[in-house]
Design a protein around this nucleic acid. Sequence first.
DNA 1: CCGGATCCTTGTCGATACTG
DNA 2: CAGTATCGACAAGGATCCGG
Lengths: 120, 120
Amino acid sequence: MSDGAEDIEWRSVCPISSALDLLGDKWSLLVIRDLISHGTRTYSEFRESPEHIATNILASRLKLLTSLGLIERTNPEGAARNNAYRLTAKGEALRPVLEELARWSQAHLKELHRGLVDIL
Amino acid sequence: MSDGAEDIEWRSVCPISSALDLLGDKWSLLVIRDLISHGTRTYSEFRESPEHIATNILASRLKLLTSLGLIERTNPEGAARNNAYRLTAKGEALRPVLEELARWSQAHLKELHRGLVDIL
DNA sequence: CCGGATCCTTGTCGATACTG
DNA sequence: CAGTATCGACAAGGATCCGG
């Protein structure tokens, strides 16, 4: 229960720590990534991503990211069925973070993880 | 047991997902942050950071980051007492990621988290 | 004292089954 | 197809203990 933005507990006033209070888990940024590379994405399209997120986690993250104002539904008034999500400006602004993260992986993770692929 | 780099499970070949497989938690990047802003840091100095990491989590992260080659002890052969940690080149390379993350927080998190402070 | 290790409780993750 | 409900496994967090 409670996947809203209201009851976030900030560990400190540090911007990095605060960003991690919101996005410091293994899934939130992958949802953002999918929206950056595809523009929009429906519930089942998220599930088809190669990391195979569990349905409860996906629902929980979509709810949280929506309440944070990072993503929104393309048709807010419409039915749930086939209703896609997309990034808001605030969510889109995370693009440089993901780009730097991908750049770092490609520069320093190849030896640890053979098969790592090039993107962006 | 097992805070080593050997048994990491990669969810996919995506660089972003792979980076999050290593660093996608609430604490690892804060350890990196402390080393970026202070150069070196001892065990108890890490504990004095405002987020107050628990000792078992700190020890576990230091072990993992060391085995990943992101950090190292300043005096590898010396005693544990007052032996500090510092970043390797691979860890230092994460600086742009943290900078972008801080930039994003300062641009988009002020309304959610009053008291957020400016750094970097 | 300092750098951890251990114990124990609580919370979150994640797989799967299920519902509107 | 878009989510919820349930339950077991595991990680986080706090307290305390131990070795040098």
